[in-house]
Computed example of a mutant assay.
Amino acid sequence: MLQKEHRLTDKRDFQRVFHHGQSFANRYLVIYFLKNRNSDTFRVGFSVSKKVGKAVTRNRVKRLLREAFRSSRDQIKEAYDLVVIARPSAAELEYENVVQNVHHLLRNMDKPDAQKRKPQQQTRRSASDKQGERKKGVH
């Protein structure tokens, strides 16, 4: 089990990572990460929605993810706040596959900024912009 110092639990911390962090994804998992200047260790939180399955399945996925991060904590060199989101396809994974996918995400976190994707800010378009697109034939 992850030690208390490695757990991200506060809703505000989750929101801060989502809004200001960067993300990377693979077929089974999405990771959002943000440097944490207030700590000298990483913290990780998990989000597994009802789309993944019923409670038993969701809890199994969270247990596997917690253990995968616990076993690979040496791979995380810097103090990051991490939020890991399990996609519905993660329900079919065995432990070894979960570990491989976690290692894949952690390796790609360390790549240069050109490889990282920033969460896109949604912009509101006015009704006139939408109508202008329709006239041009763009939908």
Rank of each mutant, 00 (worst) to 15 (best):
G53W: 09
D110P: 00
R43M: 08
S47N: 07
T57G: 06
H103P: 02
N101Y: 04
Q122A: 07
P119D: 09
Q15V: 12
Q22I: 10
G137R: 04
A55Q: 10
N108S: 05
N26A: 02
G132P: 00
K35Q: 12
P88E: 03
L2E: 04
D81F: 08
N108V: 00
A55F: 01
K51A: 15
N38M: 03
F46I: 04
P88T: 08
T41F: 12
K35S: 08
R37H: 15
R43P: 02
L93F: 04
N26T: 03
R134G: 01
G21S: 07
T123K: 13
T123L: 07
E67A: 10
K136N: 06
P119M: 03
S89F: 01
Q100Y: 09
Y95P: 08
F24R: 03
S39C: 07
V17F: 01
K77V: 05
G21W: 00
D81A: 14
Q121R: 14
Q75V: 09
S72F: 01
N59H: 13
D129G: 00
R37T: 07
R73L: 14
M109D: 11
K118L: 09
R117D: 07
A90S: 13
R12P: 01
S23D: 00
A114Y: 08
T57M: 11
N36V: 05
K77W: 00
L34R: 14
H6Y: 12
R12T: 14
Y28D: 14
S49W: 11
I31V: 14
G137A: 00
V61P: 02
G132T: 15
G21E: 08
